[in-house]
Design a binder for these strands. Structure first.
Lengths: 235, 235
DNA sequence: CGTGTTAGTTAGAAGCTCTAACAAGAGTAT
DNA sequence: ATACTCTTGTTAGAGCTTCTAACTAACACG
């Protein structure tokens, strides 16, 4: 229903664009985004270099498309992991587990989003929207967990610094303006993000190689520390 | 004393190498390592492109030199922050604070080490050595904190996952083989690294821009969470 | 004062992104 | 059915990159 009847021209155009992106992903997976070559893609497809510029204005536009695809895929993955009926802790654990699997399945895809930004490159607005959507899933879970715990311990701040951060977030929550979650939920969602990203990004960049321990256990510990302690870890 | 009497040739050579690296750092700071151009550096220095290849075998070797410089500088910074006589918590707090300042002072320098690795690039052994040196500072602090706390709570594992990680690290500690710190100290040192890196890397990559909160407070909270709770934060 | 090493040069190969100008096909309108 | 337009491909080429080859000039040393 989404794809109305399209003229064969635009059908062909979209098909070629997808084929170009497929080759681009293969290159990204092999050598990383910085080494992506439009010329090489054209050669692989049996067409001439400049022909690609009919489908993408320039290299940056192609990379932007890849970035958006990655964000969309990550967003879908998180959404699929967070089963609506499940208790919040289970959802958080499922998302944490899915996040790492998603990153390890294609490290360069993860780095395309969270790695070194390209020099003059600015992320498109849709990327921000998609990132916000993932944040909403986290906020939903933490808000629900907070509500269940009532006024009891639950996710209350664990230190003076956390209290100060909560106060600050209560006043600076532009990114979660239209979400009813309390400041402590914002803090915990941010912490979920930074702690899990901390482990994943060092792992995919290879900083743990040669150290001899299993990053999965470190990841599990960090997942636990952000309240993502369900039973889905070994699925 | 370290620099013995050198012939004018090697003196000149080293001087030019340093000048090249200085220009390279300027380029890295401006546009990031991926856009570093040997040709542009040569033009800035008023010499011809291929002349640079007398001083660096190729682009990778220059980047490797920059990476090593960055590691050396980071190592020195951490060592300088951890004042020997201070209590371990104070040293950890000072290192945490110095780490963030070091990263924000030159974001691209941080990304050169911890960002997306270059495709075919392998970090030189000396980089690993320097990274291990920083780890030793952390292990020293956590081991000392552990000893002070005796068998009491202190830095004991906070969850089942942490206990499992401790057990695993006790058996897989190749990276800290010659350090007497207990497994819990290894765990806490790793956590120091991943949690602080999680915040810093997202901040320098610009993922917090537009969200409207102050990353410094999030960083302070994470510093606290790894036992780096001294009074040096606002120095 | 020769002699060998070293630092620079220019020329050029092979790659890249991207623009300009042109040929040929596909779809559409008359 | 014919004519027209729009799109997709082509080749040529500018300008950038890394990096090699061959050559010259200067410097340090025996």
């Amino acid at each position: 229903m989404g794809d109305a009847i399209k003229s064969p021209r635009v059908r062909y155009r979209e098909q070629v664009r997808e084929e170009i992106k497929a080759h681009a992903w293969a290159q990204v997976a092999a050598t990383g985004a910085s080494a992506l070559s439009l010329n090489a893609i054209a050669k692989q497809m049996g067409i001439s270099g400049p022909a690609l510029y009919r489908y993408f204005r320039n290299r940056d536009e192609l990379i932007t498309e890849l970035v958006l695809d990655a964000y969309r895929d990550l967003s879908d993955t998180c959404r699929a992991a967070a089963t609506p009926g499940d208790p919040p802790e289970t959802r958080l654990a499922a998302m944490a587990s899915a996040l790492r699997r998603w990153a390890l399945a294609a490290p360069h895809r993860y780095l395309l989003i969270y790695g070194t930004p390209v020099p003059g490159y600015a992320a498109p607005p849709e990327a921000t929207t998609l990132a916000a959507g993932i944040m909403t899933l986290l906020l939903d879970a933490y808000a629900e967990a907070d509500a269940e715990a009532g006024t009891a311990a639950g996710g209350g701040p664990a230190s003076d610094a956390a209290t100060a951060l909560d106060d600050h977030l209560a006043a600076h929550r532009r990114w979660a303006a239209d979400h009813p979650a309390p400041a402590s939920a914002l803090r915990r969602a941010l912490t979920f993000w930074t702690r899990l990203h901390g482990v994943i990004s060092l792992e995919v960049a290879g900083h743990f190689t040669g150290m001899g321990f299993d990053p999965a256990l470190l990841y599990a510990t960090e997942s636990d520390s952000v309240g993502a302690s369900g039973e889905v870890r070994s699925r």
